[in-house]
Amino acid sequence: MTALVLKKTIDCNQGAVRAVRYNVDGSYCLTCGSDKKIKLWNPNNGLILKTYGGHADEVTDAAGSCDSCHIVSSSIDKSIIYWDVSTGQPLRRLRVHAGGVNCVRFNEDSSIAVSGSKDNTIMCWDIRTRKLEPIQVMKDAKDCITSLIVTNYKIIAASLDGAIRHYDIRAGELSCDKIGEPVTYIAQTSDEQCIVAACLDGVVRLIDNDSGDLLSEYTGHQAEDYHIECGILSNDSQIVSGSMEGCAVIWDLIEGKEISRLNIGQGVVHSLTTHPTGPEMILAKRRDIYIFGLQSNDNDLTE
């Protein structure tokens, strides 16, 4: 596989970019800014499509629905907002969390939004009804929920208490994998077999979903105290993580060796999102986002 090259840099112009997320098919991306706004971009040409304002504090996370008609976003203001993409109006504002909301995800058919908060709870919201109360609250975590994955039958939550909790709806059981290190972000392989967990001790860990075994560790980047995200590149053969030193580090998933580093200058690369299908990803650093992809074909031709 050829190396990823920087294709575009966008100054989001919304303060620090707290998170960058692809939409469901990777044709658009969302950036959450510290200026309380969410921006929808076309990463291919770097055009801004819409700005969503309505949060009262920094936006921490956002997710697009499966039909790309809605966005759900979380903020430090303890609220979750369900947006209409085309009008830019907030459809629902859910304020039950007792602390800032760290992460939010849709389920597969975007009927449920799952949010994880600093109040140690996970809440499941039936987003299509007008109900303003969560349909379920999971209070098992002992510390902030940092990241969530929602698959078609599981809710996986990472917490700062150093555990990853799998809420298996099908089996009706909760399996708690205690790692011991605070987990800042989790991503799942596309075959749903493994989880990649970015831990606060500067190690990215690959964990088997079924057995809860630690399969591999990836080191080389610097995390310090930052909430650094990791990801799996689409072909499930590489793992990528942001770093404090202004770069993203890519490892081979199986061998655990560092393949390359994408340097983008000073600053902490804390957020990243990988394209759901193609070999692309977006890094977020300070107020900019950097879109990486393969060298385009016409460029090759010209060369």
Binding site: N107, E108, D109, S111, I112, C124, D126, I135, Q136, M138, D140, N152, Y153, Y167, D168, I169, R170, A171, G172, E173, L174, S175, C176, D177, K178, I179, G180, E181, D201, V203, R205, I207, S211, G212, D213, L214, E217
Partner: peptide, 27 residues
């Protein structure tokens, strides 16, 4: 830095509404 992951399983009841929305029969 030797990390050993412990897995603890407990029962957890997903709410019926959640199951419905996830299209899963209640355990």
């Amino acid at each position: 830095k030797k990390i050993k992951i412990e897995r603890v399983k407990t029962s957890w009841k997903p709410s019926s509404q959640l199951c419905k929305r996830f299209n899963i029969a209640e355990p």
